[in-house]
């Protein structure tokens, strides 16, 4: 079992629905977010290109955030999901400094929070909240080890990339390009 997400930059319109949906689903306090949108424009008018990406924790295979956590609050759970146990987290910030994607934030209650791949929903057989809401259906989620899962299929069909592969973290959120 290896969960992963693929996001189609050709369809994403950058509406940030995935951001609000995550906030309301996961009670992310206003002023914080677990996912966010990056829009990159290249070129000169009228020769232009835009890439829009919905970004979040990449649930890396080789996660510096898990390695540097002094208490074990940051850990892997089934399917390669990286999670934080709130009552083990001391709020030292090491994991925040260690993430090259700035995917973690310090929750106002003190602990560190980040995307969980909505594992509470996956368990119930539902898609992550952001995937379920996306109006352009540009997000694919599932088990990489299952060749018939949505992600596996779309990754087989399309060209893709991940973010800062040179950081060596082995991310598991992929961008279809």
């Amino acid at each position: 079992m290896r969960y992963a997400m693929a996001i189609d930059t050709k369809k994403c319109v950058g509406c940030a629905d995935c951001v609000v949906a995550c906030q309301t689903e996961n009670m992310v306090p206003i002023g914080y977010c677990r996912d966010w949108i990056v829009e990159v424009t290249d070129g000169t008018y009228p020769q232009l290109e835009i890439e829009i990406r919905s970004e979040r924790c990449n649930h890396c295979d080789n996660s510096p955030c898990v390695r540097c956590c002094p208490t074990g609050a940051s850990h892997y759970v089934e399917g390669g999901i990286v999670k934080v146990t709130q009552h083990k987290c001391i709020g030292c910030g090491a994991c925040i400094a260690s993430c090259p994607y700035d995917a973690r934030y310090s929750h106002p209650d003190g602990y560190v929070d980040k995307c969980t791949f909505c594992d509470h929903r996956i368990k119930l057989g539902e898609q992550p909240a952001c995937v379920a809401v996306c109006p352009t259906k540009c997000m694919y989620f599932g088990d990489l080890d299952d060749p018939n899962s949505e992600v596996s299929k779309v990754l087989k069909k399309r060209k893709y990339k991940s973010l800062i592969p040179e950081a060596g973290t082995r991310p598991h959120v992929f961008y279809l390009i």
Binding site: A16, Y32, W36, V38, S106
Partner: peptide, 8 residues
Amino acid sequence: ITSGRMNA
């Protein structure tokens, strides 16, 4: 970043 992200 267009979503207004400003995580403290």
